[in-house]
Design a protein around this nucleic acid. Sequence first.
DNA 1: TAAAATAATTAGTCTTATCTAATTTTATGA
DNA 2: TCATAAAATTAGATAAGACTAATTATTTTA
Lengths: 217, 217
Amino acid sequence: MYTLSEENYLKSIYRLGQQANFKITPTAIAESLGNNPASVVDMIRKLTEKQLIAYDKKKGVELTPQGLKDAVLIVRRHRLWEVFLLEKLGYHWDEIHDIAEELEHINNATLADRLDKFLGFPEYDPHGDPIPKANGKVPKPYSVTLTDLKAGDDCRVAAVRDTSSSFLQYLQKLDIGIGTRIQLVEKISFDNSLVISISGRASTTVSQKFGENILVD
Amino acid sequence: MYTLSEENYLKSIYRLGQQANFKITPTAIAESLGNNPASVVDMIRKLTEKQLIAYDKKKGVELTPQGLKDAVLIVRRHRLWEVFLLEKLGYHWDEIHDIAEELEHINNATLADRLDKFLGFPEYDPHGDPIPKANGKVPKPYSVTLTDLKAGDDCRVAAVRDTSSSFLQYLQKLDIGIGTRIQLVEKISFDNSLVISISGRASTTVSQKFGENILVD
DNA sequence: TAAAATAATTAGTCTTATCTAATTTTATGA
DNA sequence: TCATAAAATTAGATAAGACTAATTATTTTA
């Protein structure tokens, strides 16, 4: 249906569009894909011709209804495969993204739906991101972070914002995963550091930046 | 590691090499991949430079030890995914090949081995072809066909030779799958047709060509 | 064995997706 | 508002992998 490149652009544009009030410029797309703005301009032309996106210098790039539909399906496949890799094949959090990045492009009429069923129709992927449903509906993403809590509050880790290897490995070191219980012991007002207790164990201190990247229930 | 195209050539050369006493010519490769001999000549040059194949006008194309190793790994991935698609996702026999054709190219260091373990280290794929082991060893392929049996003999379907959609769909219609018990009731000497009883049911007659494509235990 | 058929190869073209370098447009800030 | 910086765009190049058409080798077969 689409080339690998086209799919990657669609997905990238979709992802950038998730950030509220963010103007999707050629440069932004180039950065997110790690390539040259000149290449992006070419692809913007191509995807515009195919009516998958609309580009307005003022408003930036936007997905058309068709482009959105297709992008959501790619994201659906990506996230379902992530669940599979983690739950069924025993991969770690920080290993699954790159593999899913390849698996997501396999487009068989019923593959995603069968995989979905096989996995028990999960609502969120291992990074806590919502998995779009077969009909294109996207479950509500988590929005409360550790930094939004008050001292004494208890929560459960639902997802992470940052999905870089370094962050995920840090989480692993702290023994934090999806579902881990965390209590906010204290907020240090000086630099907004957070003193937390992970799974009821002795307190640890983490940075504000860390807290902003942990989404909780 | 390799491009999609390179992998497809390696696999195709490996497959052609499975047929005993078969000279692997540019034309044969072109036919098996459905493309132009001129393109094949280009790729032969490229793969020869990379020392994955050796080409001699007299002997045709041969895989080098390295080329063989890589080809076997691709075949391993292909067949493991076929098992997954059939057993875990509930696809039919005749649907899995094309999807596995895409999945086989995903090359993560431990993916095939994890999948292998997840599937319980199967020895044969749903078409009955042996699944190469992680160390590159290939289990012995089945070799006895329905036509090799004598009237009265009982057997179990182990694999099929032909994997075309039309044949697989015919099998489906006859309710024959891997493991199905078949009894050879009679051999018609006139045209070598076979009268068989499938899973103990009333007899059916099938052609010699059909029988030659059913491998049995 | 010579002619005809088939196969292999070369030469040149095309498409996709990328790049660099140069230019034009837009935004920013003194 | 005008100079400078940043962003967007154009032009032209490149690489991979495919193609067609033309040519050269090799087989067949009469």
